[in-house]
Design a protein around this nucleic acid. Structure first.
Lengths: 235, 235
DNA sequence: TTTGCTCTATGTAGTATTTGACATACTCCC
DNA sequence: GGGAGTATGTCAAATACTACATAGAGCAAA
C-alpha cells in the first residue's frame, strides 16, 4: 500500500525536527520525498556503504548497529515512527558508520542528497534546526557513554525498558505493554552485555514484580521502581 | 602575557573548523574574540551552568568530564590547542552537560552567544561547516562507545596513549614523548576503569617494552605493537 | 639551598563481584 | 517435527574493591 500525500504529510508532521518548518517548507519537502518499504529484518544500508540518502521512518522500527571485529553487535539506536535516519552521511559525506535493519515491517520516506541540499539551501534556518538536533544527540550519546561506565546491567536494562515503553508502549490494565518484540540477544546488544546476563536480570525483574509478560510481550508493571533502578538506586 | 592579534589569528588558523573560512570571515571572528586565561586545575565551567559562551583553546589543555552520583569521574574528552569547547550550549540552549577544567595553564578565545549568532547569521555557510563537524563528532562518540563495549582495558588504554601521543607528542630518540602529564587516576577516568588497573596495565606495557619514562613523562617506544593492542589483537 | 613535613601518586596484594563462555534442556511457533 | 528462541546452571576470567606500603613532589621554615 502506498501512502497518499495527506497521509505522508501527517507522518512527517510527527518529526520533531520538522515541526519547526512553515507549511510551505513542509509541502516542499513532502513533494520531494520518495518512499521505500522494508520487510522485517531487511537491511536498509550496511556499515561502509556510501551514504547518498536520508530517511524518515513513517511506520515501523529500525535498529542501527555496528559489528565488532569478532562479530559481536552493539545496537546504537532503535528508531521508530517519526525518527530521522542516515542524515550524518549527507552532512559530512562519510560512508555509513553503522548498519540499519528493520525490526518489523517498515515504511520510510527517502530524501536523497540533491533534494536535501536544495532544501537546506532554500531554507537557511533548517541548518540551525539541524544543528540543535545534532547537539542534542551528541549530549544523549555522551549520556549513554556515562551509563555504560557508571551503571551496572540492572540499571542499563531498566533504563532501556523504560525507553522502549516510552516509544512503543501501550497502556493496559497490568501496566505498559511494549509492542516491540526484542530477543534477549538484542537487548544484550543494546545495553552492552550478554544474552545470559539479560536473561538473568530480566528474570530477577520478573520475580520482583517489576515486569511481567502478556502473550510474550513485555509489560512494565512497576515503572517507578524500575526508574529508581535505572537511576542507580540498588535493589 | 596577552596575545596580539597576529598571534591570536595564527592560533585560530589551526582550528580545523575555521580553515574553511575566508580571510574576511576570519578577521571578523578574530576581532570579536575576547580572551581568558586559566591556571592549572582551574575550572572553566561546571556541569549544570547555563552556557553563554564558547571557547577556542589557544594554548594548553582542558579536560571535559562528568561526575556520577557516587562522585566518580568520566573524562569525555581531552582538548588541546585549536579545539573548540562549549559550543553545544550555544547551539541548543541547554546548560552545560559536563565540567571543563584546565589540565595545565591555558589560554582561550571567548566567543559569546551574541557574537556567535551574529557570525552564523552573517556567514550562512558556517552552519554547514558546523554541521559537518558535529556529524563527525557524533560518529567519534559512537566509536568511543563501541570501544567501551567491545574492547578490554589493554586496548582502550593503548588507544588513549596513542591518541595522546598524536596530540601532545614530541619525537625523541627513544620514541614519542607525551608532554601532557596525566595521573593514573585521570587515565582511569578516561578509559572507564580504576586507577589500580591502569597502574597494572601500564606496568605491563613497560615490562613488555612498549612504553617507557623520561623524567616522569610517558614515552611511547613501540607504537606499532600498541596500535595492534588498541585494535584488539591480544598480547 | 637544605631539611623535613605533608600530600599526592604509585605500586602491590588479596578478596569479592560481575560477567562472559559453555553446556544443556525446554518451549513455542511455523 | 524441526528450528529458533529461551531458561538456567556451572565454571572461569576479568575487573573492581579494599587496604596498605612506598615513593616523589611541592612547600615552608630554617
Amino acid at each position: 500500500m502506498v501512502l497518499n500525500q495527506a497521509e505522508l504529510k501527517k507522518h512527517l508532521k510527527e518529526v520533531d525536527l520538522f515541526t519547526f518548518l512553515t507549511e510551505d517548507q513542509f509541502n516542499q519537502l513532502v513533494a520531494a520525498a520518495a518512499q521505500k518499504k522494508l520487510a522485517k529484518n531487511e537491511v536498509l544500508f550496511l556499515e561502509g556503504d556510501p551514504g547518498e540518502a536520508m530517511f524518515i521512518i513513517l511506520e515501523g522500527a529500525v535498529q542501527v548497529y555496528t559489528l565488532s571485529p569478532e562479530g559481536k553487535e552493539k545496537i546504537l539506536a532503535i528508531l521508530g515512527q517519526g525518527d530521522l535516519l542516515g542524515e550524518l552521511s549527507l552532512l559530512d559525506g562519510e560512508p555509513r558508520s553503522a548498519t540499519a535493519q528493520a525490526l518489523e515491517p517498515t515504511r520510510l520516506a527517502v530524501i536523497d542528497r540533491a533534494q536535501f541540499e536544495r532544501f537546506i539551501r532554500e531554507n537557511s534556518e533548517v541548518a540551525l534546526i539541524l544543528l540543535r538536533d545534532l547537539a542534542h544527540r551528541l549530549r544523549q550519546t555522551d549520556a549513554h557513554l556515562q551509563d555504560l561506565v557508571f551503571k551496572d546491567i540492572q540499571s542499563r536494562l531498566a533504563k532501556v525498558l523504560l525507553d522502549l515503553a516510552e516509544d512503543y508502549g501501550e497502556n493496559t490494565s497490568q501496566g505498559v505493554k511494549i509492542k516491540l518484540k526484542l530477543t534477549h540477544q538484542q537487548l544484550a546488544n543494546y545495553v552492552g552485555s550478554t544474552r545470559e546476563t539479560v536473561t538473568r536480570t530480566l528474570l530477577a525483574f520478573q520475580d520482583a514484580g517489576y515486569v511481567g509478560f502478556d502473550q510474550r510481550f513485555l509489560v512494565i508493571t512497576d515503572p517507578e521502581t524500575l526508574q529508581q533502578i535505572a537511576d542507580g538506586e540498588p535493589k
